[in-house]
Design a protein around this nucleic acid. Structure first.
Length: 478
DNA sequence: TGAAATGTTGGGGCG
DNA sequence: ACGCCCCAACATTTC
């Protein structure tokens, strides 16, 4: 029996894993490998990765293997193992980030040239980015026709499990701690209160969602004050759960429902369609990143390269630390810092505020999100920022400036979300909870929220900020 | 997957 | 009963 390395990256699961399945079914003895290249310092998503790896390690252990953890540059690590263990094949699932593609392409050529069998697969996406093209054989630039084309082809479900018995090759491994994925400064100490990075927990969340919240997903997903979303993003990014497993779960639940005629099937179908379309946006992000790798740093709309940003470290710091004086913005930024996650509606609000009212370059916001999000996903994050900044393809028009006060009133109508994350607002009456500066001096005292003292004064005037942004935008229009 | 400015309409108070 | 004004409520336009 020959040995094959299955190199796991953002696909930390044995189910729905085509590279792993192929290795087993092709009759190889499997060396499950994870390499930590340590190119980024410990941050929120490496915290997640640490515990996700612990879970993955455990699942391999319980099926009789041991996960091989290594540190260093991928090529060197692979070469060492190949030499030591007479490895005949290397299998992995594809990445789609520019650097990931560059590394993987080079490595595939290198090891093929040495006579190894190297095979790559799709575990991360419903459709490969090169698969979906418009009538002129070019990539789509608008979401809706793109997603229709995907739906027309049919959404693939989970990849099959191996049919043959799994044979593991046990190897020496570093201890998980030696990967140094946890920061020495334990600013992440509150994460465990909010997250359990295990596959079982992710599946549980998915199932729970499909049993209840999916029915009101259409409106509830916009409400940061209630748990109306799946909160699956970190599971999907690390690959504890595969996106195609989500598709399969939806299909299975739909099939179960069609056998009984339930009265609430309409809301179920609507919710599922909405969820699928959110997964569609994720796909579209990977698609755009694949076809336009430069979009990580460069706006997709040429004219935005001339945008007159007003770089200001003080404003950026105030935004990052949730001290802007606008409750919904501060609540979002503090939720992010404390839990490693932010509700999507609030991501749009804080992004619009940073880019438009504060006139800071979207790349600054994108960088901060990548450092602080558990689900730090280059594709989704880049597209999210380009979308709100109005410089992406099929983006929100720049003139659509979110007003943090009206957005707060609309999507956090009881003030529960802002009060949860901005404790200064706990005793502020609902009427002023999204605009505490409107309280008179006496009420500010009585509410323990003296503006300019206990809670910051608004960092920018909304009307002025909006007008300044629109003027700047006019200046770059053709 | 906005918001603000501007335009239009229609009911009610009032002389 | 009528015209006039006011102004909410809604609709349209603009960024």
């Amino acid at each position: 029996m020959d040995n094959a390395i299955v190199w796991f990256r953002d696909d930390l699961r044995l189910q729905d894993n085509p590279a792993f399945t192929a290795a087993v079914d092709n009759g190889y003895r499997v060396i499950p490998l994870v390499i930590s290249e340590q190119t980024v310092p410990a941050s929120a998503h490496t915290w997640w990765r640490h515990y996700a790896l612990a879970d993955f390690q455990q699942s391999i252990k319980s099926s009789g293997g041991n996960l091989c953890l290594r540190l260093g540059r991928a090529e060197g690590v692979l070469q060492t193992l190949i030499d030591e263990l007479q490895v005949k094949a290397v299998f992995w699932n594809r990445r789609y980030t520019p650097t990931g593609i560059a590394i993987d392409t080079g490595m595939k050529q290198h090891f093929k040239a040495l006579g190894l069998e190297v095979k790559t697969f799709n575990a991360a996406l419903i459709k490969e980015p090169w698969q979906i093209l418009n009538k002129t054989q070019k990539p789509y630039r608008v979401f809706t026709p793109y997603w229709k084309a995907c739906l027309h082809e049919g959404l693939a479900g989970a990849n099959p499990l191996p049919e043959k018995k799994i044979h593991w090759l046990r190897t020496e491994s570093l201890a998980l701690q030696e990967l140094e994925l946890l920061d020495h400064i334990r600013w992440d100490k509150q994460f465990p209160e909010h997250w359990k990075p295990t596959r079982a927990e992710g599946l549980e969340q998915l199932n729970h969602f499909l049993q209840g919240p999916v029915h009101s997903y259409d409106c509830d997903r916009d409400r940061p004050d209630i748990v109306g979303t799946t909160r699956l993003s970190p599971y999907l990014h690390s690959g504890l759960i595969g996106v195609r497993e989500v598709v399969s779960a939806i299909e299975l639940e739909t099939a179960l429902r069609s056998t009984r005629s339930s009265v609430d099937s309409a809301s179920f179908v609507t919710g599922c369609d909405k969820l699928l379309s959110e997964l569609g946006w994720r796909e579209f992000s990977y698609y755009l990143l694949y076809h336009h790798p430069e979009c990580v740093r460069e706006p997709l709309q040429e004219s935005f390269k001339r945008f007159p940003w007003k770089k200001d470290q003080k404003l950026l710091r105030a935004w990052q630390s949730g001290q802007t004086g606008y409750p919904i913005v501060d609540a979002g930024m503090r939720e992010l810092w404390q839990t490693g996650w932010m509700h999507n509606r609030v991501r749009m609000i804080v992004a619009s505020f940073l880019v438009k009212h504060l006139m800071q370059p979207w790349q600054e916001g994108a960088d901060w999100f990548m450092q602080t999000l558990l689900d730090a996903d280059l594709a989704s994050n880049t597209q999210g920022w380009q979308w709100t900044s109005g410089c992406g393809v099929d983006a929100s028009p720049f003139f659509r400036v979110f007003n943090p006060v009206s957005q707060g009133k609309k999507f956090d109508p009881d003030g529960a979300y802002v009060r949860r994350w901005v404790p200064e607002l706990k005793r502020v009456p609902l009427k002023q909870v999204h605009e505490p500066w409107l309280m008179d001096a006496g009420l500010q005292q009585a509410s323990n929220c003296v503006v300019g003292d206990q809670y910051p004064k608004p960092i920018v005037d909304l009307k002025q900020g909006r007008e300044r942004a629109l003027e700047a935008w006019q200046s770059i229009r053709e």
